[in-house]
């Protein structure tokens, strides 16, 4: 956040999103500003929010995947671990600092949504729900990236693991889930395909976001599975990360394999 990279990223992102919004709105009214089509305006809102979610989802690992492994590579981790900061405190601090710029990107584009209001279609509650879910998704991906960064020894590996996770979340669950649903629609008797299609789609942030904007799209409270599964994943990785940072924290757990701290710090 202290380097030139932050203002350049924020300015570039806002400019791109503003141009895209104006383009979509212009297309929406087909050059006639007096022509109001609330349904199409909502489409603009959905397109913008989905696109924004994809962008921040793929941007987040770039800021978070080197959080701890970068400290190790810079040789600043050992000193940090000799301070009274707890491993949990270090991890949470890293997640917050990695998410900060992405949250800022989301905040600066809020005024663009207000333009969509001008043409009707979206209500403030919907916008706030979408915004909250986007923030949650950013924090989630940042948390997973920071923990991959803690568990793996090198930033290269943590970047690969983080992008694999995001690809799974955004592309694989979406593609597979939608594919299974498509097949199930043609073979309605195949409950198995339909069920797993729904399960996979409920793990996709874009699908959840679309369901927030269009409640008929997914089952009621479908987002709970999303939150539950990924929070559980974060919980498991969090424990492994704490063990990685300070294995002594688990000294009372019988039979736990002690890591070789020399290699890590």
């Amino acid at each position: 956040m202290r380097t030139l990279r932050a203002p350049v990223v924020v300015t570039g992102y806002f400019t791109a999103m503003a141009l895209l919004t104006f383009f979509l709105l212009y297309e929406n009214v087909q050059g006639q500003l007096s022509m109001f089509l609330p349904a199409r305006s909502e489409q603009v809102f959905v397109t913008l929010s989905l696109l924004q979610t994809v962008i921040v989802a793929f941007l987040t690992p770039a800021f978070a995947a080197g959080a701890i492994s970068g400290e190790r590579e810079r040789r600043t981790l050992a000193v940090l671990l000799t301070t009274p900061l707890s491993p949990a405190g270090i991890l949470i601090g890293k997640i917050l600092s990695s998410s900060a710029l992405l949250a800022l990107l989301l905040v600066v584009t809020l005024p663009l949504y207000s333009l969509v209001f001008l043409f009707g279609g979206a209500v403030p509650e919907e916008v706030m729900a979408v915004f909250a879910f986007q923030l949650f998704t950013v924090a989630l991906i940042a948390a997973l990236s920071v923990m991959w960064s803690t568990i793996s020894l090198r930033s290269g590996w943590s970047t690969i693991l983080s992008y694999t996770t995001v690809t799974w979340m955004v592309l694989i669950t979406g593609g597979l889930g939608y594919g299974l649903q498509w097949i199930a629609a043609r073979f309605p008797m195949d409950y198995f395909l339909s069920h797993w299609g729904k399960v996979l789609l409920s793990l996709n942030p874009l699908w959840i976001l679309a369901a927030i904007e269009n409640p008929g799209l997914a089952e009621r409270n479908g987002w709970l599975r999303f939150v539950g599964v990924y929070t559980a994943m974060c919980g498991i990785l969090f424990l492994v990360s704490v063990w990685r940072l300070r294995p002594q924290s688990f000294r009372l757990v019988p039979g736990i394999v002690r890591t070789d701290e020399r290699n890590y710090q």
Binding site: T3, R74, R75, T76, T83, P84
Partner: peptide
């Protein structure tokens, strides 16, 4: 303790005074 390792690194884009204050924050 105050610990200085044999091989250490420093943070980029932070001044000497800020560097010390950062660690002071770590120790509350």
């Amino acid at each position: 303790i105050g610990y200085m390792p044999d091989a250490f690194g420093v943070y980029d884009d932070i001044t000497a005074e800020e560097y010390l204050q950062f660690y002071a924050d770590c120790y509350r």
